[in-house]
């Protein structure tokens, strides 16, 4: 693995940890959901750099796509029930 790939990988890993921290610490629930989706997105880019495009695709489709959508869908339902 050459230096460029390694530095991109380390950068992505640091970004993942940062966004994961944001997910825990965010005060607004929508921010936390988006940050959780972003963790998956960074993970899928990392998988792509590690030459695993199939895994990256699964991560992007399920982790950052479907799950984030589902969180927002349920959030909408819960808010609709409250008001």
């Amino acid at each position: 693995m050459n230096t460029v790939l390694l530095s991109i990988g380390v950068l992505l890993a640091v970004a993942m940890i940062g966004v994961a921290w944001l997910t825990i610490r965010a005060t607004r629930i929508a921010t936390a959901m988006l940050a959780a989706g972003l963790v998956s997105l960074f993970a899928s880019v990392l998988f792509l750099f590690l030459a695993a495009p199939d895994v990256a695709m699964t991560e992007a489709a399920i982790g950052s796509g479907l799950t984030t959508f589902l969180f927002f869908f349920v959030l909408g339902r819960v808010r609709g029930g409250q008001s």
Partner: peptide, 24 residues
């Protein structure tokens, strides 16, 4: 190409979820 049944199925389902999101 990369991907296949599971990934494609999840993408198709996310289209259905987007429809549900627009009109619950």
């Amino acid at each position: 190409t990369p991907g296949g049944g599971f990934q494609g199925g999840a993408i198709v389902a996310s289209a259905a979820l987007l429809l549900l999101l627009t009109d619950p």
